[in-house]
Design a binder for these strands. Structure first.
Lengths: 201, 201
DNA sequence: ATTTATTTAATACACCTGTACTATATTTAT
DNA sequence: ATAAATATAGTACAGGTGTATTAAATAAAT
């Protein structure tokens, strides 16, 4: 008896509109009215799918992390030598220059926002943190890391570096040379990996 | 003929109130009314010193950067062996655990906000970027860096690392071990400095 | 064709927003 | 004391905010 509208598809549409607005105007501009307009529906319609604004934001954040996790999985399957693959993977998790729908940027904005939104930031639900953890444990598995490496410490160091690079790319992206981030990540990887182990870049 | 109120002192008071609110509630909560209440004055009074909200925010951001630059200068004068001094300096530019008036945190919030505030982020006005640049050129001067170091690249790498660490400390500060950041920075410094040059930590 | 469940539109409420304006203090200089 | 300059309070306007409620439209099932 319903109108033939897929509930979940519609929710995804709205979440994508939210995502887009967050990138364009920040969380500040992500009012329900703005989002409804962006999604091409009415306030009442939006309200039908998400009874509360917070519910919509949580849903959108989940979508963004799911998207990033999926991209991570794809990048893991590329056919390349291990160290080069990992480098490409990390680069792939930075804001793409010119892409208008960057999941990385949206994640960063929402991550910082979490400081003032009641619910505290949970790294275990952060797709980027998970990706970095996977990468590090892969390096361990392949025995590419230098001896006496503190895995936990290096994980956190790389994670911080990724957040900083993402921020830099987002805020001064145009100013930077195209593969500045690539060179930095390459240097970083070389500094934590064994030398001459065939993995050298 | 005026009431004996130091204009600049009052402006600083208001800016400090703004600063405090930004930490507590984010830029979103930094409405002129909220700020006026925090500063213990009326909306009209606030409006007398800052005719526009944006003017107040710019003023506050300048204050924060000036505060950080001052702290950097102080930390540069501590009497310690070079490499240890630099380590302490970097640690001093991360969010202090438990301090309710962290300039570093406020800077980070405003930095990210710059994406959606029209005016684009200018690294040359960023106190942290300047500090990192000073630190790196000091390492060069003291001949502590490894041969074949790309100075510009390592500057940007350390800068990104600092931003990432600041973010981490701010968002999951309680979760982290007290000197996690210290260990990370120590590792990082050792990895870019010559070994056995007497600067080893 | 009529019933039924789902989807949309429209409106209203109470509140917060930045800015503008006016009238009233308050304090110093003459 | 009077005048001038500074400072504050109070109020108003136009618009945005999240949420709630109601009535209407839509399309499938009977």
């Amino acid at each position: 008896m319903p109108k033939l509208i897929d509930h979940d598809t519609k929710k995804l549409d709205i979440a994508h509109a939210t995502w887009k607005i967050i990138l364009k105007e920040g969380v500040r501009g992500a009012s329900v009215r703005n989002i409804a307009k962006e999604a091409g529906i009415t306030l009442g319609a939006l309200r039908y799918y998400f009874t509360t604004q917070d519910e919509l934001l949580v849903y959108t954040e989940d979508l963004i992390h799911a998207t990033l996790a999926e991209r991570t999985a794809e990048l893991f399957m590329v056919d390349l030598p291990p160290q080069e693959k990992i480098l490409q993977l990390l680069i792939g998790l930075l804001p793409e220059t010119g892409s208008g729908s960057s999941a990385v940027e949206a994640r960063l904005i929402l991550k910082l926002q979490s400081k003032h939104s009641g619910k505290s930031f949970d790294a275990s639900r952060d797709s980027i943190y998970q990706a970095v953890k996977s990468i590090m444990s892969n390096l361990v598995m392949l025995n590419l890391l230098k001896k006496e490496t503190d895995l936990s410490l290096e994980t956190d160091r790389l994670y911080a570096l990724m957040d900083g690079l993402a921020m830099d790319a987002m805020l001064r992206g145009a100013v930077n040379k195209p593969d500045k981030a690539r060179n930095i990540l390459e240097t970083h990887l070389n500094s934590i990996c064994k030398e001459g182990s065939g993995g050298q870049l």
